[in-house]
Structures are given as C-alpha cells and as structure tokens.
Write a protein that binds this DNA or RNA. Structure first.
Ligand SMILES: NC(=O)c1ccc[n+]([C@@H]2O[C@H](COP(=O)([O-])OP(=O)(O)OC[C@H]3O[C@@H](n4cnc5c(N)ncnc54)[C@H](O)[C@@H]3O)[C@@H](O)[C@H]2O)c1
Ligand SMILES: NC(=O)c1ccc[n+]([C@@H]2O[C@H](COP(=O)([O-])OP(=O)(O)OC[C@H]3O[C@@H](n4cnc5c(N)ncnc54)[C@H](O)[C@@H]3O)[C@@H](O)[C@H]2O)c1
Lengths: 247, 247
DNA sequence: GTGACTTTGTGCATTTGTTCACAAACGACG
DNA sequence: CGTCGTTTGTGAACAAATGCACAAAGTCAC
C-alpha cells in the first residue's frame, strides 16, 4: 500500500492519440494494478523454471500466482504478445520479458537508513538481493553501531548519506528509522537525488512531485485483518447486517 | 509519476446477499479501499490528539493522512455521520468510531511463527502492541532458540503451536519462517482455528475459504519502485514509449 | 433572529480494474 | 491440406474507486 501522492502527476503525460477504447492504459502503458502483480508472476515463473517447466499455460501460472487466469492474460498482454496459442508461454522468455518490464535487467542500488532491529533484518536478508537489487550501504545515527558488519555491508554514520548516494548512484532509499526521524531522513534522501523510497516508519511522508514513496506498515496490515476478523465474528453471531444499510 | 497502488491482498471471498445497486458496498458495509485507509486516518487522529486538537476538519485530516479530502469524507461517511457541519470532526469521538469500525475496541492476540531476524524484530517492536494487539507467543523450530527472551515473550518450540493458540484464543497468526516452511505452518495455524494470517514469507499461501491472508513482501515493493524509477528514467531520455507500448 | 460563512455528506460523472466469453491462432495428427 | 483440440488475446459488460461540485446543515457575530 502506498500512501504518498496519488497525484496524477502531469509531467509529460503525453496525449496518446486515442489508440482505441482502451480503458486502463497509463502513461507507461501498464496499469498500476498490473504492475503490482508482475512481481508475483515473476516469482511464480522462477519457481516453475526451477521445477523444470519449459512452458506454462495461463491457467497453471494463474494458480501458482493465486489469481484469475483471465486477469493474468490481460496483465501479460500489456507487456506484449508473448504467448503461443494452443501452447502457453515459454517460461524462460516470459521471465525475461517480465523482468525487462519491471526494470530488473539493470541493477538497482539500495541504501538502508536505520540499523535498528528492522534495518538489520533487512540488511541480513539475502532474499531480495538475488535479483536486481544490491544493498550498497546501511546508515545509522548511533555512533556505537558504526563499523558493525551487517550482512554484506558495514554500518556507516548517517552523515555520509549524501556521499554514499552519489558515489553509488543509489536509486532506492529504505527508511527504517523511528517515525520521528523519518521525514528528515526522507528530505535528505530526496535532496541527494533519490526518487524511490520505501518507508517502514509509521508515518506519512511528504515528498515533492516526481518522488515515488511506498510504505510497508505492519500495524495497518494487522488492523485490516482485525476488521475482517471482527466482521466474520459478528456474522457468526447472527448479527445480521440487516438491510444494506442505506444510511 | 508517483504511483500509489493500494493492493488488496485479501483472499477471502465476502459472502454477500445480492445486495443490489450500490456500487462500492461490501458485506460489512465498508468498501475494501476504505478499510485500508482507516488505519491511516486513525494514526493521523492520534497524532492530532497528542498535539492537543479537539476538532479537525476533513481538509486538515486529509492533509495529515495524505489523501484527498473528498475521499476522506466519503470514507468516514461509511462509518456513520459523525461530523458537524461548519465545524469538523471531534477528534476523540472520531478516534473511538474508527477504532470501533476496525474492531480495535477488543484486544487481539498475535502469535509469531519464526524467530529469525524478522520474527525477532517484530517481537521486539513495541509500536503495534500499543493499541489493540498483543503478542502472546513466538515460536520456532530451532531448539537452540527456545527459551530465549524476545521482547515481551520467550521463544517456545513450534510443537506448542496448537496449545498456544487454543489457550490464548489467538486470532492472528504471523508467519516469519522461510518460504519452504510457510505453507506447512499456515496449514497448522488454520487447523488450530486461526482465520487471520499475516505472511512475510515470499510465497503464495493457499488457504480454505473463510481464512484471511495478507502478505507483506519487500521484494514486491522494491520491484514496483524499480518499475516506476525505470519509467521516469526512460522518459527523461526521450525513450518514446511508442515502439515499446504497441508491438 | 438574521445573515454571512464554514464544512459536511453525497449525487454524479469519470476513471480504473475485473471478469466473462469467444474468435482467432496455433500445434498435432492423419 | 484439412480438421481437431487447445490456449491466447481481447471486446464488452460489469464492478469498484475516485474526485468534483454543491445543497444542506451547521456555527458564529451581532
Ligand atoms: N521492528 C519491526 O518489526 C517494525 C515493524 C513495523 C514498523 N517498524 C518501524 O520501523 C522503524 C524501525 O524499527 P526498528 O524496530 O528497527 O527500530 P529501532 O529503534 O530498533 O531502530 C531504529 C534505528 O534508527 C536509528 N536512527 C534514529 N534516528 C536516526 C537518524 N536520524 N538517522 C539515521 N538513523 C537513525 C537508531 O539509532 C536506531 O538504530 C520504526 O519506525 C518502526 O516503527 C518496525
Ligand atoms: N528479514 C527480512 O528483512 C525479510 C524481508 C522480506 C521477507 N522476509 C521473509 O521473512 C521470512 C523470515 O525471514 P528471516 O530473515 O527472519 O529468516 P531467518 O532465517 O532469519 O529466520 C527464519 C526462522 O524460522 C525458523 N523456522 C524454520 N522452519 C520453521 C518451522 N517449520 N516452524 C517454525 N519456525 C521455523 C528458523 O529456525 C528461523 O529461526 C522469510 O521467509 C523471508 O523470506 C524477510
């Protein structure tokens, strides 16, 4: 879920000549909802590839990814026409195409700010380094943490933020500081040229146009679960939601 | 383009009596998209309350929450009519109403399975205990971790899963094991009666109807950021999407 | 009490996303 | 080469979410 800006962002949204009655085409050509699912497909494809599959039908892949197969086909159709009718998709080729669409054919450099419990867990985590992402630094303001090795890097002091970013052409900043420090850190990241930020601090960051913020918020997830759990619970006790409450 | 995808990860199928013409009404009476934002409003309200605000207008609150004010009003209108025209909303009262809608007036018991880097960070994290959620146990299969104190609890062996759940009437299970173990753990949670699961393992869990799974997936977030970053990058270099988009 | 001003709540048009269902495209096979 | 079964890609219907714009409902000053 993302908080920041759902601002249509008028920068260079070229007036596509009405290429048809297409409803969902966004500037980049791929609807947001589709973009959010591509990584899931990609993971499913890797799993299938490891299992030795050469081709896969939309039905199979849909099951692996946990979605409707029509949705899957429509999603993939936004990347191009890479399937073979009567056969399915070539797994390896589709991996390549999805990766390319997501921008994973290049390597992305990631800097983590905040080497607390969470920041350390992230830096230790090998799982997302595997493809396309590389942790180039982890920073903290606590001098006692500086120099400590974590995963592939060593903690550096947060004063080095700007130099770390420019010298590594960091593309993605991860904020794992307490909420109180998050906006300041964010501002510094942006000032240093970072335009993609993943925020773990439980607060709404404000950023200028052109900067992309996504957030991961544990509390929110739990609260959403609680809502549904409560609803199931109430239903079970005959708390019939009588009419469709028209208020 | 700043993007914001609010991806409903829910896998439950809300049973609805063929309600009728209303567009967005879901069974509980509150649209999914609204439910996902209520926690954000709630946090903003707490911040305002701490700051001493007695009332707040939809415009102010919208700014704090990072959303459009019309959206905010429509969201809140699903809970009831709790504003005062010409004045705004009473902060304290709205906190109560939102909390109640989310099911936070009762306490939820949480069990974490997997006491690795992530599980430990979660258990140490005080932030989401504050309101409504309480960690009742953390479990692991590694005997060398058993007995180790983490945050408010002590690691217990995963064989105790069923007893921990029933004796604490655990409502929410958090999976922080490697992907390979996630489905097995999930099945055991479900068998023990858990119907709300938060999954950190990078894989699609399959669960029976009536069980609600949400996932938190770092890789996916990074990949979505990469997509947008790539697009911004390509735009800046006049890489006209023409050839890419059609084809 | 009256009028000016503020802010909510919502009808409605628009946009975005999902699902169905089927023609067209393809391989296989005789 | 033609026929058959399979699977894609997509038009079209449907559903959900968004954002505008404004009437209704309130406060406040006097
Ligand atoms: N741990 C979790 O499971 C969890 C879950 C959800 C959200 N979060 C959020 O993630 C963030 C980090 O959580 P945590 O558990 O790692 O906290 P933590 O207190 O363990 O770590 C925070 C770290 O940030 C450093 N820091 C503080 N100010 C800084 C600054 N200006 N620049 C650089 N570093 C700075 C601190 O020195 C500390 O090492 C918090 O905002 C928390 O609310 C954590
Ligand atoms: N650490 C991160 O930043 C991060 C980020 C994204 C996703 N994840 C995912 O979260 C999960 C946990 O990550 P981690 O870094 O804590 O891994 P980890 O290896 O540090 O910890 C995993 C723990 O699970 C335990 N475990 C294994 N099988 C078990 C079972 N059947 N029952 C109970 N416990 C079992 C292991 O003993 C270990 O302690 C992984 O799936 C990982 O992919 C982690």
């Amino acid at each position: 879920m993302t908080s920041a800006a759902e601002i249509p962002d008028t920068e260079t949204v070229p007036e596509e000549p009405p290429g048809g009655g297409e409803p969902a085409r966004v500037a980049g050509g791929i609807p947001e909802a589709t973009v959010a699912r591509l990584p899931v497909y990609l993971r499913a494809l890797y799993t299938l590839a490891e299992r030795g599959a050469n081709t896969v039908s939309s039905d199979e892949l849909a099951v692996c990814a946990g979605v409707n197969s029509a949705k899957l086909r429509k999603d993939l159709s936004h990347l191009g026409s890479y399937g073979i009718r009567g056969v399915g998709y070539d797994v390896e080729y589709l991996v390549y195409q999805v990766s390319r669409a997501l921008g994973l054919t290049q390597n992305w450099s990631v800097v983590i700010v905040g080497a607390g419990n969470l920041g350390r867990a992230l830096a230790n985590y090998g799982g997302f380094l595997t493809r396309g992402f590389q942790i180039s630094a982890i920073l903290d303001s606590d001098p006692s943490l500086v120099g400590r090795p974590i995963g592939p890097v060593t903690v550096r002091h947060v004063t080095e933020l700007e130099s770390v970013i420019t010298s590594n052409s960091v593309a993605i900043g991860v904020i794992a500081t307490p909420a109180g420090a998050a906006q300041v850190v964010c501002d510094r990241l942006v000032a240093a040229g970072v335009t993609s930020i993943l925020n773990f601090a439980p607060m709404v960051l404000s950023v200028p146009d052109g900067v992309d913020v996504r957030k991961v918020d544990l509390s929110i997830e739990l609260q959403i679960l609680a809502f549904h759990a409560q609803r199931r619970f109430a239903e079970r006790f005959g708390q019939e939601s009588d009419s469709v409450a028209e208020a």
